[in-house]
Every structure is written in C-alpha cells, then in structure tokens.
Amino acid sequence: MNNDPVDSRLIQRIRDNPKYQQLVQKRSRFAWRLSILMLIIYYAFILVIAFAPKSLGIKIAAGSVISVGIPIGVFIIVAAFLLTGIYVRRANGEFDELTRQIKEETK
C-alpha cells in the first residue's frame, strides 16, 4: 500500500516454497525460545529482588565478603551477550543460507 508492492505472484511462489515455510518455522521458534529464556533469566532475578532480596546477600563462601548477588548479576550480563552470539551464529549461517536458496529458487 505505502511501499512498493512486491509482485503478488512472486509472494505466492515464495510462500509455497517448502524451504520458506521451514525458514519461518525454524527461525521464529529459535527466536522466541531465546527471547523467553532471556525473559525467564531476567524476571527470575527481578522476582527474587521483589520477594526475597535477602537471598542475594548470602556470601559465596564462609569468610568471604562477596555476596552471591554479584556473580549472579555478572552472569546475567554475560548470558545476555552469549545468547546474542548464539542467535547471530545460527542466523547468519543456517538461516541466511536458507534465505539465499529461497531467493535462488524463486527468481
């Protein structure tokens, strides 16, 4: 409507391509799973802060001043970075290869 309408027959051809359906299914499942994982990690942390803030103050070892909250916090930051790495690796490899094949086949 507002943008250049891509040829509707081309769209139909792409949608009928099993590889397209495979791409959509695989990618969206992967993306949502990782998103939910990130949300669970983060909201678990937030809920602990909301309902049991003291538990993050437990020391990592007897005689240490470091609380478990510190490595947990750093872990969440590192986990966020690693998850993006995992997604980019698969998307820029497997998914982009599928996309390339779809473009090739539906030219």
Partner: peptide, 16 residues
C-alpha cells in the same frame, strides 16, 4: 547493578 542489568537485557530481545 539492578539498573544496569535492566538496561542491558532489552538488547538480546531486540535482536531476536
């Protein structure tokens, strides 16, 4: 640290 984690965790979701 609670704030900085909140500022960061939006990024993976933006990517996915």
């Amino acid at each position: 640290l609670i704030y900085s984690i909140g500022f960061l965790v939006g990024w993976p979701v933006i990517l996915f």
